[in-house]
C-alpha cells in the first residue's frame, strides 16, 4: 500500500516535471521570436518594394526580393564615402586602443612601480565619471587646435590609454598568466618590453580580441562624437549619414532607411557571429571577477 503511494507520487512528479519543461520551452521560444523579430523586420523591409512595405496584412518575407532600396539610397547620399570615413575612424582608433590599453594593463598587472595601486584606484573611479563633465573643455581644446571637422578628435584620444574599461579587462587577463613565466624570462636577461611583446601579448590574444571587438563596435556606432566634431557632409560617418537621410526628403522612405541601417548593422553582426566567445569572455571577466 505504502509502496504504491510512493510510486504514484514519483509518477505525478515526473508528469509535473514534463509540464514544467514544456512551459519553459514555450516561454523561451516565444521570447526568442520576440527578440529576433525587430532585426528580421529590418532585413525584410530593406528588401521590399514600397507596395509590399505598406501592404495590409503585412508581408513577412519579401516577394520578389528587390534591391532598389539600396541603389536609391546610394544615389541620394554618398554612403560609400560615409562608410569609408567610418572605417578609417574605427580602425585607427581601435589600433590605438589596443596598443595603449595593453601597455597600461601590463603595467598594472605585472610591473612594480611606486604609486601603482593608487593610480589603479583612480583609473577605476574614472569609470563612474560621466563623459559630459569633460566633454566641453575637451571640445574647446580641440577647437583651439583647429581639429574640429577632422577625424583627429575621434581618433587621438584612443591612443591615450583607451579608457579604463579596456585597461581593466586586459589587466585581469594579464593577471591570469603565471608569474613564473615572466620571472624566468627576466633571469634570462629579457627586458620588460621583450616580456611584454614576446610572452605576455601572445598569451592574452583572446582578451585583445575582446578589446578589439568592443572598441570596433563602440566607434562604429558612435553618434555623439561625430555629431559634435564633424561638420561637413563629406566628413560624415555612417551614423550621421543615416540620421541625415531620415529627414532628407521630408518624407521617410522606410525601405531605403532600413537598407542603410542594415548596412550599418552588418559588420557588427558579422563580428559577433565570428567572435561570440570573446564577447562573452570579455563581459564576464570585467563584470564579475574583479
Amino acid at each position: 500500500m505504502r509502496g504504491f503511494r510512493v510510486q504514484a507520487k514519483i509518477k505525478s512528479k515526473k508528469v509535473s516535471n514534463i509540464l514544467v519543461k514544456a512551459i519553459l520551452y514555450v516561454i523561451i521560444i516565444a521570447l526568442s521570436v520576440l527578440f529576433a523579430f525587430p532585426l528580421f523586420w529590418m532585413i525584410s523591409t530593406a528588401f521590399k518594394s514600397n507596395e509590399q512595405i505598406f501592404a495590409e496584412p503585412p508581408i513577412w518575407i519579401p516577394k520578389p526580393i528587390v534591391f532598389e532600396n539600396f541603389s536609391n539610397a546610394w544615389n541620394k547620399l554618398p554612403f560609400n564615402l560615409f562608410l569609408k570615413n567610418t572605417i578609417i575612424i574605427t580602425l585607427t582608433a581601435t589600433i590605438g586602443i589596443i596598443i595603449s590599453s595593453s601597455l597600461v594593463g601590463f603595467a598594472f598587472a605585472y610591473l612594480e612601480w611606486p604609486g601603482r595601486d593608487i593610480w589603479f584606484v583612480i583609473m577605476l573611479s574614472t569609470m563612474m565619471l560621466p563623459a559630459q563633465v569633460t566633454m566641453i573643455p575637451i571640445f574647446i581644446l580641440f577647437t583651439k587646435l583647429g581639429w574640429v571637422n577632422t577625424f583627429k578628435p575621434l581618433i587621438i584620444p584612443a591612443y591615450f590609454g583607451g579608457g579604463p574599461f579596456y585597461i581593466f579587462l586586459l589587466r585581469q587577463f594579464f593577471l591570469t598568466i603565471p608569474r613564473e613565466l615572466f620571472d624566468s624570462a627576466t633571469v634570462d636577461g629579457c627586458t620588460s618590453l621583450d616580456i611584454f611583446i614576446r610572452i605576455a601579448l601572445p598569451l592574452v590574444k583572446p582578451a585583445i580580441s575582446a578589446v578589439a571587438i568592443f572598441s570596433f563596435m563602440g566607434h562604429w556606432n558612435d553618434f555623439m562624437g561625430p555629431l559634435i566634431y564633424l561638420r561637413s557632409t563629406e566628413k560624415y560617418t555612417l551614423s550621421l549619414g543615416i540620421n541625415m537621410f531620415r529627414g532628407y526628403e521630408g518624407i521617410t522612405m522606410w525601405g531605403e532607411l532600413m537598407a542603410v541601417s542594415l548596412v550599418a548593422a552588418i559588420p557588427c553582426l558579422a563580428i559577433f557571429f565570428i567572435a561570440q566567445k570573446y564577447f562573452i569572455q570579455g563581459i564576464t571577466l570585467t563584470g564579475l571577477k574583479g
Binding site: 525587430p38 532585426l39 563596435m217 556606432n221 551614423s239 531620415r246 522606410w254 532607411l257 557588427c268
Partner: peptide, 24 residues
C-alpha cells in the same frame, strides 16, 4: 542558440537600431 538570439539585439546599437524602432 537561445543565448545568441537574446544577445543579438544588443550588438546592433546606435542610429541603425534607433531607425529600426522608429519604423516599428
Amino acid at each position: 542558440l537561445f543565448r545568441t538570439i537574446f544577445y543579438i539585439p544588443s550588438v546592433v546599437s546606435g542610429v541603425a537600431l534607433a531607425m529600426l524602432w522608429v519604423w516599428l
